[in-house]
Amino acid sequence: MISVEREKPLACWKGKDAYDGSVLTTLTVIFRTGGCAWNRCRMCGYRHERYHGLSGDALADRIIRQVNWVKANFRDDDYQMLKIFTSGSFFDPVEVPPPVRDAVAAAFRGKLVIAETRPEYVATDAVSEFIAGIDTGEWDVPLYVAMGLETTDDGIREKSIDKGFTFADFTGAADRARAGGAGVKTYLMMKPPFLTEQEAIDDMHRSIREAAPLSDMISMNLCTVQSRTEVERYWKQGAYRPPYLWSVISVLLKAGPHVLCDPVGGGSIRGPHNCRTCDHDIIGAITDYSLNADRSLLRAVAEMDCTCKKEWEFVCSREMPYCMPLTR
């Protein structure tokens, strides 16, 4: 039997997201592309997902076929917001050839689009062109350029992530995005490798505070252990532990602005977790807060008692850079 090869995105699913005080239905698409040009981040498992050795035209064709797949499988009326991820940068013309951007704009015209990219690919022209393609006047700001700042601490970004850009690079890109008419969504990363639990918490407090004035939305990702990554190697050797969910709620509760947080992989040993007894309730509270910005449920679970809370408090006070992680 001959298998019919159909191009489809790496992943595509519908969900709900908070936006401007209301809840929108969102379609999230992760496109397979030419791959991230940087490709060095220590925790990134998408780096292996790419087309190899395709010419620009062939690559564009493959990605446009993925767009068509999305159009064929999800009805336009079923969602308002579109979140686009690639394994790298949507605005990198080598990874995502410009004809693809035009095709995406045409295909999803009228949607509120959030597209992820590294700051060095944010060019005012490209942003305004894309906006011209999708804008129907439905949204005040029809495009948000999303960037993985991860932390505002350049030292941590370099050592723990190997991200390859600075806070200043991000600020410049945010300015360019705004000049092109887009908003800015900032992704932060809680607890990349080499940080103690308390250092990770402090890093997020500070990063939220410092990124807030530059961001229309802040989303905090929780570091997970993905296959075939440097983080996975350390994790297998007992040298890395994802954040405690207790840490996550303490960060969210103390944050000034509403911080979005989707606890992906929550409760599993490869994701943010506590002792597994209390994980479920806390994940529910985080998801709830992320959607409706109401801190009451978050406060309630923070007050909850669990045997692992004493352990977490101990880890926060006694885990040091020279003796970590203390727990698995």
């Binding site: 050592k159 490798p193 080499f194 940080l195 103690t196 250092e199 050797q237 890395y240 850079p321 020279y322």
Partner: peptide, 10 residues
Amino acid sequence: RMKHAHVPLS
């Protein structure tokens, strides 16, 4: 006092 100073054994 030394912050962010972790270096794993491997």
